[in-house]
Nucleic acid binder design. Structure first.
Lengths: 197, 197, 197, 197
DNA sequence: AATGAATGAGGCTTCATTCAT
DNA sequence: AATGAATGAAGCCTCATTCAT
């Protein structure tokens, strides 16, 4: 028992979360029904409630995990080098990577998070702002050292984030460009956008 | 009857469309109910069906109008000058303008269009691709003349479009930057992103 | 239209209320389902919501109407004569009458009213207290004039009310005693209980 | 094992019964869920089934015990003296006592017993009738000896029972009258109601 | 053109209960 | 004896839509 059971428990919740993630990402939170989620994991709807107290809580679990990952990686990128240019490069790399590797999570946090209750919505928003500030700080620091030239830090950071977010929409593993190329190209685009000389 | 009545009829439909637009934009297509839309225009739900045969048809009307506007303006921008740099400038200007002035429409076509039926979805997607190709063509032409330097036309055009789409998310009329400044800044950002020398 | 329609509207609501009343009275508020109520009026459950916004609201409509009737009749009885003995007689007569003629309503207000929301519960309780005070006042006045002899006004009034409430439980139209005899007997019992000389 | 375990077993069942009693009394049998009962005893719902085979069985256990107590005490009161007046006095004393000391049980048997299955319902009803006949017999005997004067034995006994039942509704330990006064006052009320000279 | 009413489908969730552990 | 998980049934209610008026 013990380890095994806890494992099974965690597995079931994770399986549900994954199924919900796919559905939320594909058709949206509202259009995805508990019935569909249950069917996707081979259960009855009522069984889901042994693992999550509500549909919203599943959405929250998805959003929270994704945002925490994003924040962590963003901070690591920001701390990866003393050089702002290298920082930006690392940040963009991880940003695009995430939006390629976790397309579904990305779409959910970008489009479905408004369906969270007021308080949870606030939390996710706060995390998102946190992440955004990481990038803005990089831009500001680089600009002060004359490495970047942007008309407005805020808009520049929004722009870079937006580009990545959109990757989660158009990228397809079977598309014309391999993930590594997408990442590389976006590094360059972001550096140009930042006005690197 | 005749002109007058047709006018009134059109007005009513427009009023409904506007109310639906706000709701779709705020809470999403699925979460917005015909009851809410009717309440917003001071009617009963059943009355809506005198003007639109279904909820989806309202969404379609919104999407179609918005896409047509966007396409038209995009083509005008592309034709506004023989100089690719000026074309890009004009395109971005119009793109950002639209996403500021029609924030709600923009959010609906970007996020809710998946709720359309298969055929309608295809049509909107086709229009979107059309719009995107306008921009891609500008970039390609400019690159051939040595004015732009981007690693990949498709990604570069996606990037520029994404930046604008995101403006419709974060822009607020009562925010720190006036619309004109937002437009101006994005012109510069886009030119830098395109690697203009 | 007009009168006729309003009539139909009122009729539908009244029909639903009556069906719900029977069910609430028989099996209790919780055990009675909207499905059952709808079936009893020959409708689908969803149709009920065209007439009452919720199950609780039906309960409330029942309780409110019953309590208002009871209060009104109680006050009329209290005002029917200057003589406290006659007042008590009239009060008991109407009290028993109500609990015979409106057995179902009586059982619902006595047993199901706790299922109302906090605020509504408070209102019904207040009305019940109002009714009770009518009776208590009669007893007090009569006692002051030496016509009644009870150890405690409150308990005596509770006792008389309780006797009537219980009539709604055991009385059956096809039982051994006709309603008129039940009323008459209870007049006497109440007068004795009140210690009339 | 043996004694000790049986004791523990019985304790657990009793604890569950007590928790269920409170809930049934407060919100009604239907509105009280096995989950709530389990939570009240610090268990999971599934555990309850080690002690009771079903929710209804808990209700039955409560009703049966309460009715047996009531019947026994009623018979003791009826046998406590050869004098009908003393018998009535004793009966009422015990009746009120029970409805004060076992308010919750009283409310459950008076209001929730209809939720029992047909057969169990019949049994409880039979016990109740048994109890009622004890009182009716006292009244009849006393009337024959000219000590009581009531218009109808059945109604008089219902009346006295009803008064007590209602005590379980309004009595509160922190109310204005101590239990002993309530008992005493009701003795007098009942004797008056019975037309004692 | 407007709407009150009806409705079938389906929404999320809770229920009492079972069973393997 | 306890319980985590599963489940079929059912709970209340909302939905988009239809139709007669």
């Amino acid at each position: 028992m013990g380890t095994r059971d806890l494992g099974a428990r965690r597995d079931a919740a994770a399986t549900i979360k994954k199924a919900a993630l796919s559905l939320f990402s594909d058709v949206g939170y509202e259009a995805a029904s508990m019935r569909q989620i249950a069917a996707a994991v081979g259960n009855q709807p009522a069984s889901l409630y042994n693992h999550y107290p509500s549909k919203e809580e599943i959405l929250w679990a998805i959003c929270e995990e994704a945002m925490l990952t994003l924040i962590t990686r963003g901070q690591e990128a920001a701390a990866s080098s003393p050089d702002p240019v290298e920082q930006l490069r690392a940040f963009v790399r991880q940003h695009i990577r995430f939006h390629i590797d976790h397309r579904e999570e990305a779409r959910v946090i970008n489009q479905q998070m408004t369906r969270l209750g007021r308080e949870r919505y606030r939390q996710v928003t706060a995390m998102r702002d946190d992440y955004e500030r990481s990038l803005r700080r990089i831009l500001r620091r680089g600009a002060r050292r004359g490495r970047f030239h942007v008309p407005d830090y805020r808009m520049a950071s929004y722009a870079i984030l937006a580009i990545g977010m959109h990757v989660s929409v158009w990228y397809r593993p079977d598309g014309p460009s391999p993930a590594s190329a997408v990442v590389r190209h976006h590094e360059q685009l972001a550096l140009q956008l930042a006005g690197t000389r």
